[in-house]
Amino acid sequence: MSAYSLAGIAFVLFSLAAAGFLTCGSLVRMLMFLELMLNAANIALVALSPGTVSQAYALMLFAIAAAEAGVGLALIITLASVFKTLEAENIKELKG
């Protein structure tokens, strides 16, 4: 098995998540696909450099992903309660 096939798995996951991010309209789903993109990056990090340093970085990325999900969902719920929708295309005004 070459490192290329391992990278391929991570790249396939990343691009599928990117496709989902580009096509879905719901804010919560977009955040879900964002998490999956981060997850694919994590896989690439762990798979391409077998050792403790890459795993340490992956662990730090876990914490960052958790923080991102927390703030992102708080933002989305606040936005949704103001605009009464979870669809990104219905949110057009940034003022106020």
Binding site: A3, F11, S15, A19, P50
Partner: peptide, 24 residues
Amino acid sequence: GLAAAAVILTELLKVSALLKQTVF
């Protein structure tokens, strides 16, 4: 969207072609 993702995937695989020499 899937087509756009396929483009991203092709580019990523092209860029990382050097990894073919690394055996894991």
